[in-house]
Write a protein that binds this DNA or RNA. Sequence first.
DNA 1: GGTTTGACCATAA
DNA 2: CTTATGGCCAAAC
Length: 114
Amino acid sequence: MSSQSQEPRVVSPGFNTRVYAVVRRIPPGCVSTYGDVATVLGSPRVARHVGFALAALRDDTVPWHRVINGRGRISFKGDTVRAIVQRQHLEAEGIEFSPAGVIVLARYRYRFDD
DNA sequence: GGTTTGACCATAA
DNA sequence: CTTATGGCCAAAC
């Protein structure tokens, strides 16, 4: 098979599928950070790719809203809508936000056990 | 197969 | 508290 599709496939992407697998492991009521997910994947420096993978995500089975940045805040770059929706999902799971819109990572952060 | 990008992170001011 | 800059590495162009 010489020519392969340019469009993203449902299986065998390589990196982003691993991201989805880890994010699915985050239980309800807990959150995780891009850096943590990247660390579980084996490289703590690929945090940017975690976000990039979630950006291309359109699978509802992946709780992408449970992933936030290392500062306990929702990162967004132009897509304000996504950030608002994300916050609503987190609040719906019982996660509290500080007045500044910051989540207490020390309390809600999930520990991956592998 | 090189260049740009990106839902980040750490550090500095 | 905020803003700016560099680095990091896989995916997209």
